[in-house]
């Protein structure tokens, strides 16, 4: 809780949000801070409420209580498209690329100003060279990995200050996970990222900070380097399915 006072360094502060879906109380007082220029990861079991937290920030499932402060402005309760236009890019967990649109059209659609894509095309295609090759293909002809690349690339078309990325490694082959990790690492140089990632190895290598969500509450937060040492905490909240983190050298 110490960090919340240090608000000028936080690009995003989520303060005690309550989110309901229908009558279900999904998030109960979740708080998350994301420092400018950093990667923060949301950890937690399946169904803990990580995706809902991102959607609440994005305005897709608006919170009933609590505040979301982005870049010094309260954004909770605003319509999603307005929130996006403040400079937030969203990469959803289901790789919602548009199947009826070509790769190029998917990217074009994400423009907020004319010329957004032209300005960032070189950068995007350097990160994901496949996309340039596939640019005329429709979304429904892409493989899972290609769709994931496109979903991330789409968030890079406009000038976003913050990216919300939901499980970018889900269902990807190991080589592609590596490529995705490299891409996200490069993105950090220019933007701030709030990541949801079940792959603990990937999460621990990318993020500086973590927040653990459990059963709709944010129960723990701190430096990733501390969490890696804390096997008990990992077991308690992230389950036995996650193996102990392997050192960086072993992965690469």
């Amino acid at each position: 809780m110490m960090e919340t006072t240090d608000s000028n360094r936080n690009l995003l502060s989520v303060e005690e949000i309550d989110t309901y879906i229908g009558q279900f109380h999904i998030l109960e007082g979740v708080s998350v801070d994301v420092a400018k220029g950093s990667i923060t990861v949301l950890l937690g079991r399946n169904g803990a409420g990580k995706t809902t937290t991102l959607k609440t920030i994005m305005g897709l499932t608006p919170p009933r209580n609590g505040r979301v402060i982005f870049d010094g402005q309260e954004i909770q309760g605003k319509q999603a498209f307005k929130i996006a236009n403040f400079g937030i890019g969203y990469v959803p967990e289901n790789r919602a690329v548009f199947r009826a649109l070509t790769v190029m059209e998917n990217l074009k659609l994400a423009e907020r100003k004319k010329g957004d894509l032209d300005r960032h095309a070189d950068f995007i295609f350097e990160l994901f060279p496949d996309l340039e090759r596939l640019s005329k293909l429709k979304g429904n002809h892409l493989s899972g990995g290609q769709q994931q690349m496109l979903a991330v690339a789409r968030a890079l078309v406009p000038d976003n200050k913050l990216l919300l990325i939901d499980e970018p490694s889900e269902g990807l082959a190991p080589i592609l996970i590596q490529q995705m990790m490299e891409a996200i690492r490069k993105l950090r140089e220019t933007t701030t990222i709030l990541l949801v990632e079940q792959n603990f190895i990937m999460a621990s290598q990318l993020a500086e900070r973590y927040v653990i969500i459990d059963d709709g509450k944010s129960v723990h937060r701190g430096l990733m380097s501390d969490l890696v040492q804390n096997q008990d905490l990992i077991h308690q909240y992230l389950g036995a399915s996650i193996q102990a983190p392997i050192s960086t050298s072993e992965v690469q």
């Binding site: 994005m58 897709l60 319509q79 498209f81 996006a84 969203y90 919602a96 994400a110 789409r154 406009p158």
Partner: peptide
């Protein structure tokens, strides 16, 4: 929803 999340009204 995703279209809206891209910033489109």
């Amino acid at each position: 929803q995703m279209v809206e999340a891209l910033g489109i009204n």
